[in-house]
Amino acid sequence: MATTWAYNRSPAFLDTPIHGPAATRTIRPPPGASAARSVSYTKRFEADDFAKVTATLGASVQGKKGHTTALGGKERFDFNSAYSFALPGSRTHHLATDGKANLWSLSGSQHLDVHGSEEIEYTAPEREFRPGTSHRMTLGSAVHSPLMHEQTGVFREGNRLKAFVPLFSDGRGNVGQSWYSSAKTTLHQGTTKIGEVDNTPETWKSYAVGADDAEYTLATSATRDRTVSEVGTRIDGSWTFRSAKPPTDGQTRTGLSTVRFGAQVDLDGTVAADRTVTFPVTVQGPAAGAGLKSLAVSVSYDGGTTWQQTPVAKGKITVKNPARGQTVALRGEVADTRGGKASVTVYDAYRGK
């Protein structure tokens, strides 16, 4: 298992990269900085100044390679694992904390080719890492589906709407972005189509709308080739919400709901064939918690031709895993107490082995 030592202290940058648990790092001010305000110093990092993070990156297609990256500091310095590695696989990053908690984020990328071009990337939320601590992190595991948090949803500025919904986020709650072979996203006001693009709702495409309060539906469908991923090969989503021109000139956000499936899936996208399992179903967005009006979950074993509704009991569902070499599709439909609705369907959510 390879190791990366990541040094970070701002505001300054490295003369040259230095690696090692007790390395000395000399920092100089950025070019053009005022001499009166310039400060040079040398910092010797000891092993206890680092947080140890082992990042494991999954992949459902055999023969794939990838890398992991640590991002930290005000300047968002990034430190890649030195070499690509076979997936699924792990790399250990030692993140400098300078004797106190520092903010870092880790990401993992699956490569398209030998040149390291990325076809899938997962990014974990930024968090504090403290000196002398050890952590494990998993990126890229199924079930892949839309993720909702304070930076996703529908955004309105004046009479324009735009959306950001990361469709291919992983099962651990890390934002995912992926190559896809085809996609279509539409926005309707009532039954009238406002716009249509051949992209996922991650491109910040904006649509002109009327000023009055109205009901809108954002719908998307994206398909990716099995050479990119053998799970989450197609994801459909639909979100119904209300919007009106805001009273101020600033940007406002409308949160959208989604359903997340907490199945325990191996790093290669597989589960034990034919086994009956129980796993949590989580609602995010306005329908979460006290905002939930209704939730329905369905399962398909024939690629979405027929569906079986599955009862949700205490936030969990019980289903039978697909047969060896077969897959299962999952669908969640949710409504909130304010009239919003959402539907999410994940085809080839995971495979039986």
Rank of each mutant, 00 (worst) to 15 (best):
T3F: 01
T4L: 09
R9S: 03
S10C: 04
P11S: 08
L14Y: 05
L14T: 06
I18D: 06
H19F: 14
R25V: 14
R25P: 00
I27M: 11
I27F: 06
P31H: 10
G32F: 06
A33K: 09
A36W: 07
V39H: 05
V39E: 13
Y41P: 01
T42N: 15
V53P: 09
A59R: 00
S60T: 15
K65G: 02
G66D: 11
S81K: 06
Y83M: 06
G89Q: 08
T97I: 05
T97W: 06
G99T: 04
S105C: 12
G108P: 04
H111I: 00
H111R: 08
L112Q: 12
H115M: 10
E118F: 01
P125V: 03
E128S: 08
E128A: 01
F129N: 05
H135R: 13
T138G: 10
S141P: 02
A142D: 14
S145R: 05
Q151E: 06
Q151Y: 11
Q151F: 14
V154E: 03
F155M: 04
N159K: 14
F164E: 00
S169T: 11
D170Y: 06
R172W: 03
V175T: 13
L187A: 09
L187N: 04
H188T: 10
G190Y: 06
T192R: 15
W204V: 01
Y216P: 15
T220N: 11
S229A: 15
E230Y: 00
G232E: 06
R234M: 09
R242T: 15
S243E: 00
P247D: 09
Q251N: 13
T254G: 08
L256R: 03
V265I: 12
V265P: 05
V265G: 03
D274Y: 04
T276A: 14
V281N: 11
Q284I: 01
G285W: 03
A288Q: 14
V299F: 02
Y301R: 08
T306K: 02
T306F: 07
W307H: 11
W307P: 13
W307I: 12
V312W: 01
K316S: 14
T318L: 04
N321V: 08
A323R: 05
G325S: 10
Q326M: 04
V328Y: 03
E333T: 09
V334K: 03
R338A: 15
S343Q: 14
T345D: 10
V346A: 02
Y347T: 03
Y347W: 09
R351K: 15
